[in-house]
Nucleic acid binder design. Structure first.
Lengths: 239, 239
DNA sequence: GACACGAATGGAACGCCGTTCCAAGACGAT
DNA sequence: ATCGTCTTGGAACGGCGTTCCATTCGTGTC
């Protein structure tokens, strides 16, 4: 018997870029959980099986989408005057990209060897080299910065899981922070002096400022590392 | 009609601690993916439905398991002489715990407001206060350290996903690192000078040393922060 | 001691997922 | 025109977290 219910075949062929773009759009507009091969197939007016001819797996798809966006960030950082500036630009760029596409956080922290991460390490490492961090410490320093960024990434990822896109993000964030601060205030005071102190300023804090504050601490640490190395060379400026 | 196939009811009652312990044991011995409510029910000789009377969801279960283990780490750090020592002990403790129970990494990075994370922030924050970091910067500093630790956590989590437990971990790690280094060496040299340099030392590096190196950088940054604040008080020692 | 009733139990069922399979169309080379 | 290869898309598979619910146990009340 013939299947007369079979739908028409598409005329224009599918392509990986096309699929990746559709995936990014779904992720941005409907959140991480909304990206399924069924949903993607519906949006591209095809079947889920067809997608597997262009994309090896869901992880492959997510890695490709993430790499697209991270590549854009590292390109920006490459054109800064001083290495410290470049490092800050890179950090800011990652922050803003995570803000706009928070699902990237999940992907970045899923596999530290994916190309998007290699891109970031390369970019960070080049700046650390130019900063004059001594050779053997360069790798440590670069991975420390990378770890810090990945930590940020996972925070953004769970923020996105908490409030999927659509609603007024800033309002939701405000409510959520207030409720967390309230919960923290109910904790045993003698065991949680710090957290209870923090709870007071939590609702008013600025994520971005806080992140850049962290970057500043690390940059200071790197400077200190370099100066200690220079001390060894007899170039102690403080004497 | 009566169902004669129905199995016997258990005599000793279930409890949340019992369930959490069984979950930890499965996670440690068979890996993250092996923990399913079906597997857990089989191991505890019960049905999956019964578990939901003691545990709200899988996330709840994972959070409870993680909190158990993290609480142990923060308790250790609390009894150190100097705050810098305590910070290092905390970091070392987290590292070693992640090494033994790498699935914790996934859980920690899933939800930054779970109690295990609050425990860590409190512990970090107390040390940062004693270090004399100026008030307004304390929160930034604590979350920076937390971010760094979460970054480490996510790296461990994906290591665990890469090689589920059972096999010879160190041998597998060695092979994996060598293959990654080899892949990095095939990258376009002009665009990846740093990563290709790193590839040479990658197979021989020590994760733990590297992590502690990162902690050192951050501690240096914190010292620098404190000294700048003291400068403002006229206590500049370098003049 | 009989009874009622809430809590605990455990197995079946639901809805969804990523992935695989494969019959059927499209199309270039011969 | 015919064949072989690549692409398509829908159905099917196995497994997941979770929900549902008939059954059973333990306990307080009369």
């Amino acid at each position: 018997m013939t299947l007369d219910t079979r739908t028409e075949r598409r005329t224009a062929p599918l392509s990986k870029t096309q699929i990746v773009e559709a995936a990014i759009s779904i992720l941005d507009r409907e959140g991480e959980d909304a990206l399924t091969f069924r949903a993607l197939a519906t949006r591209l007016v095809t079947g889920s099986g067809a997608l597997y001819h262009h994309v090896a797996s869901k992880d492959d798809l997510l890695a490709a989408a993430t790499d697209d966006l991270i590549a854009h960030v590292t390109r920006q950082a490459a054109s800064e005057a001083t290495p410290e500036q470049a490092l800050r630009t890179l950090a800011r760029g990652v922050f803003d990209t995570l803000q706009r596409h928070p699902w990237i956080g999940s992907v970045l922290s899923r596999d530290p060897w994916q190309y998007a991460v290699v891109r970031l390490i390369e970019s960070i490492g080049q700046q650390i080299q130019s900063m004059g961090v001594p050779g053997p410490a360069q790798f440590n320093a670069a991975t420390a910065v990378m770890s810090f960024i990945l930590g940020l990434a996972s925070q953004h990822a769970s923020r996105a899981r908490l409030f999927p896109p659509g609603a007024d993000q800033t309002a939701l964030r405000d409510v959520a922070l207030r409720s967390i601060a309230a919960r923290w205030m109910t904790l045993e005071p003698s065991e949680h002096p710090f957290v209870r102190e923090v709870a007071k300023i939590l609702p008013d804090h600025d994520d971005r400022e806080q992140f850049l504050g962290g970057v500043d601490i690390i940059v200071r640490g790197l400077r200190s590392l370099r100066e200690d190395a220079m001390d060894g060379d007899g170039s102690d400026f403080c004497r």
